Simulated assay, not measured.
Amino acid sequence: MEFAGGWDSVAVLVGDRVERRPRRPDVEPQLRREVRLMPWLAPRLPMPVPVPELVSDDPLVVRHVLVPGEPTGGVDPAHGRALGAFLRALHATPPAGAAPLGVAPADRAGALDRDTAQVVPLLPAAVRARAGALLDAVRDLPADAVVHGDVGPEHVLADDTGLTGVIDFGDAHLGDPALDLAWALHGTARPFADAVAESYGVTGEQRARALLWHRLGPWHEVTHAFDTGTSPAEGLAAVLDRLSP
């Protein structure tokens, strides 16, 4: 059985394990980083996460035990409390221990320059100044914690017992902890978001930074569309929606 929707990897279920292969050559370093990182990171976290093992080097194939569950709806406060505790533990892991395993700051400046060159010109003139201000606001935010980099409903799994795990650490890097709080605080039901904030201990400054990252989220959908030759229309609509005052 193939799992649908992965941008970076082809994932199929083989017995009780998930087998993953990169969709593109540029994804290979991500998978190799996960193989190094996750055995070190998993014991430090309060919920299950994938711990991939190398099956084949050429072509690159990795496997890990299936983390069960379905994408959370971002509604149940109990799920929010568990996610807040998970993210607090993740962000408390020592960057000095993760760095030798390949966890480094993302090329934020390069990504923002690309957004400026490729996305801003597609926006209506009336919102381009607001868009530029958003890009400027995130440019110098912290990059000092181990972050998942893509926390959203498809990567936070749950069943009728509660949250069952967090998956897909391909975008893990040294970044702003508020990035991982963006969807949890600003894309979910209020009871869920409040539970995350209480469990994590979110400050007002972190909440404000998380809103910036939440507004920036759809921009990646647009650049990904350019990379894959698909229509950027859906991503652009989301960019405009989140830029609304």
Rank of each mutant, 00 (worst) to 15 (best):
P22G: 07
P22Y: 12
R23T: 11
R24A: 10
R24L: 12
R24M: 12
R24E: 14
P25D: 09
P25M: 00
P25L: 01
P25V: 00
D26N: 00
D26Y: 09
V27F: 13
V27G: 03
V27P: 09
V27M: 12
E28A: 15
E28H: 09
E28L: 07
E28M: 10
P29G: 11
P29L: 04
P29S: 13
P29C: 12
Q30A: 13
Q30Y: 06
L31E: 04
L31N: 08
L31R: 10
L31Q: 15
R32V: 08
R32E: 14
R32M: 11
R32D: 07
R32Q: 14
R33D: 05
R33H: 04
R33T: 14
R33G: 05
R33W: 07
E34K: 07
E34T: 07
V35G: 11
V35L: 10
V35K: 03
V35N: 12
R36F: 12
R36I: 03
R36C: 01
R36S: 15
R36G: 04
L37C: 10
L37V: 14
L37P: 12
L37M: 09
M38E: 13
M38P: 03
M38Q: 15
P39K: 05
P39F: 12
P39W: 13
W40F: 13
W40L: 08
W40N: 02
L41T: 01
L41C: 05
L41Y: 13
A42P: 06
A42C: 02
P43M: 07
R44M: 00
R44S: 11
R44F: 02
L45W: 13
P46V: 11
P46M: 07
P46E: 04
P46N: 10
M47S: 01
P48Y: 07
V49N: 10
V49K: 01
V49E: 01
V49Q: 10
P50G: 05
P50F: 01
P50Q: 00
V51M: 06
V51C: 05
P52T: 00
P52R: 06
P52S: 01
P52M: 02
E53S: 14
E53K: 12
L54C: 05
L54A: 08
L54S: 04
L54M: 09
L54D: 11
L54H: 15
V55G: 03
V55S: 06
V55N: 02
V55F: 04
V55T: 05
V55R: 15
S56H: 14
D57L: 07
D57T: 14
D57G: 08
D57A: 15
D57Y: 04
D58W: 03
D58L: 02
P59R: 08
P59N: 03
L60K: 03
L60N: 02
L60T: 01
L60M: 06
L60S: 03
L60V: 11
L60I: 07
